[in-house]
Amino acid sequence: MQPEAQAVFAALAHDTRLRSLVLLHHHGELCVCELTHALGMSQPHISRHLALLRETGLVADRRSGTWVFYRLNPTLPGWAKRVLRVTAEGVVGESPFAEDARALAAMVDRPDIVRCA
């Protein structure tokens, strides 16, 4: 499913979705537990916004046991990839994006090392 421009920009307009997309851009694939830790938000809140991003076609997911991992949808059209890239690169040092990156970097037991427990 190719996202429509209106849906992409509507998704970017919400703080939780934008922060999640920026982290996914920089890290490739993240578990829901990593996003909840980095953003300091509850799992139901993050999952609700990730579901909207998935329905819009911006992210893809995969299951590994009971955990769900998200990444930017590899089939995004070029214009959408460019918008996300330029946005993520443009806000990298700004608040709250810099704090999100630091929180994620400080997370112990990241799923790529040890599965979430």
Rank of each mutant, 00 (worst) to 15 (best):
V68L: 10
K81F: 03
M1D: 09
V8E: 02
K81N: 05
P96M: 07
R115P: 13
R63L: 10
L30W: 03
S42T: 14
T56M: 05
C31G: 06
W79M: 00
M1N: 05
L23I: 08
L53F: 06
G28I: 03
P96D: 06
S42Y: 08
L35R: 00
L35P: 04
S20Y: 00
L104W: 10
E94I: 03
R115M: 13
E99F: 07
K81I: 07
H14G: 01
L39S: 05
M41Y: 13
F9Q: 00
P3I: 07
D100K: 02
R62H: 12
V92R: 13
H25A: 08
L39M: 12
V114R: 15
W79D: 01
A10I: 00
A88T: 13
D61A: 10
R17W: 02
L50H: 08
T75E: 14
A38L: 01
P44V: 11
S42C: 07
M1I: 03
L53W: 10
V92I: 15
M1R: 05
L50P: 06
P77I: 02
A11G: 01
C116H: 11
L12A: 02
G57H: 04
E55V: 06
S47A: 15
V83W: 01
V108Y: 13
E55W: 02
F69L: 11
A60Y: 02
V59I: 12
H25L: 01
A7I: 02
L12I: 03
Y70P: 03
V86G: 10
T16D: 08
P111C: 15
V68K: 14
V83H: 01
T87K: 00
V32K: 09
H37Y: 13
M1L: 05
R48H: 12
A106V: 08
R17L: 06
L52W: 10
A7L: 05
P74H: 05
L50A: 09
E94H: 14
P77H: 04
C33M: 09
A11Y: 00
S95A: 14
M107I: 09
T56N: 02
R110T: 14
D15Y: 02
G28F: 04
T16A: 09
E29P: 06
A5G: 11
V83L: 00
L104H: 06
L23N: 02
A60C: 11
C116A: 08
G90E: 11
G78F: 05
D109E: 15
R54S: 07
V108T: 13
P3H: 07
V114Q: 14
V92K: 09
R110I: 11
V92Q: 08
H45E: 14
A5I: 04
L35T: 10
A98W: 03
I46E: 03
A117D: 15
A80Q: 03
H25S: 04
H25P: 02
L76Q: 11
P111I: 05
C116L: 03
H27A: 06
L50N: 11
L24K: 09
W67Q: 14
E99D: 14
W79Q: 05
L104T: 13
C116F: 12
R62W: 11
T36H: 05
V108K: 15
R110D: 11
N73A: 14
H14M: 04
S64G: 09
Y70K: 06
P3R: 00
R48C: 09
M41D: 08
S47Y: 12
L18E: 09
I46C: 07
H26N: 11
F9P: 04
A11M: 03
T16R: 02
H25G: 04
A38G: 07
S20Q: 06
V32Q: 12
P77A: 03
